[in-house]
Design a protein around this nucleic acid. Structure first.
Lengths: 157, 157
DNA sequence: TCACATTTTGTATGTTTATTCATGTTAAAA
DNA sequence: TTTTAACATGAATAAACATACAAAATGTGA
């Protein structure tokens, strides 16, 4: 194992074990384990590991590892499938109709299912049309906002 | 509604709707809605809203709202309950024994249940002792690391 | 209304994180 | 082996974000 790989491993462990709040602090932890790098490298490492920084619910922030890679990658895949097939969307109460490219309804609907959005109760797909049943009282605006936040490249309206 | 409250609302909406990657970008979004503030204020607003910054799974980072406040606060409560009662921990295979202050076993165990850690299959509490059944193949080290990452103030070993 | 406290904000500046650029290192190709 | 390309790193620096402090805005009790 080369030094970079070892360092990345250490970083993961340290981040999962402590509430690390800055790269400087992480640097200190690594130093204690005789790993010596500069802040610049840590910045690159954290990006590589896709480490995020979230609130401790109190007044500070700490680094977090992303949900595991598999899960992440498949999410990306679903998003891609939806963006690929999606054409337009319309609503009637809690029912939502999505039109897709011919033959894409199934892939889009199944991707939508797999995303397990709270807002979606279920889907039925034809060939180029999907019926999405939404949670009661959810407005079309809210659902569109959620979709957009997950799939920024979606062009709605 | 005063201007600050309105602004916070706008920020939440914008962040949930777009992949905002910097305060400068957020500033631009707000400007389009005729909300005029400085970066300094946004920094404070984001901290107030406990907004985090996470990987887009690709190569960038964007702001995210925290899980809803209720959930967050109750999590903090559980953590507090555990830290309050916890004394020490020991292991035998996938079984873990936690000793707590007299009478605290129940509150600690129920808090532990409520945290819904993947690692924990179930708990049984007496008066000052809890039996925690862990997922198979989980090492005591791993479990302790998880606990510490959730409850940094815990002093183990 | 005034006087006073509290909150919110901008400016200036400090701190933290990301990037550029030069250099070293490793791995593959010839 | 030498050459070349890709990658990894540190130093310096730029960009992004946070904060101290003063001023402005807002609230509160008389």
């Amino acid at each position: 194992m080369n030094s970079r790989t070892a360092r990345l491993k250490s970083i993961k462990r340290i981040i999962s074990e402590y509430h690390v709040t800055s790269q400087e602090q992480l640097l200190a932890f690594l130093k204690k384990e005789n790993v010596s790098v500069t802040q610049a490298t840590l910045s690159r490492d954290l990006k590589l590991l896709k480490v995020g920084k979230v609130s401790d619910g109190n007044n500070g922030y700490y680094y977090t590892l992303p949900r595991n890679r598999k899960e992440m990658e498949s999410t990306q895949q679903y998003i891609h499938d939806i963006a690929r097939g999606f054409l337009c969307i319309s609503f009637s109460g809690s029912l939502c109709i999505m039109k897709t490219l011919a033959g894409h309804a199934n892939s889009v609907a199944s991707a939508l299912d797999n995303l397990e959005m709270d807002e979606v109760l279920g889907t039925i797909a034809g060939d180029d049309t999907i019926l999405v049943v939404l949670k009661e009282n959810l407005t079309s605006k809210q659902f569109i906002a959620s979709l957009k936040s997950i799939i920024p490249e979606l062009e709605i309206e």
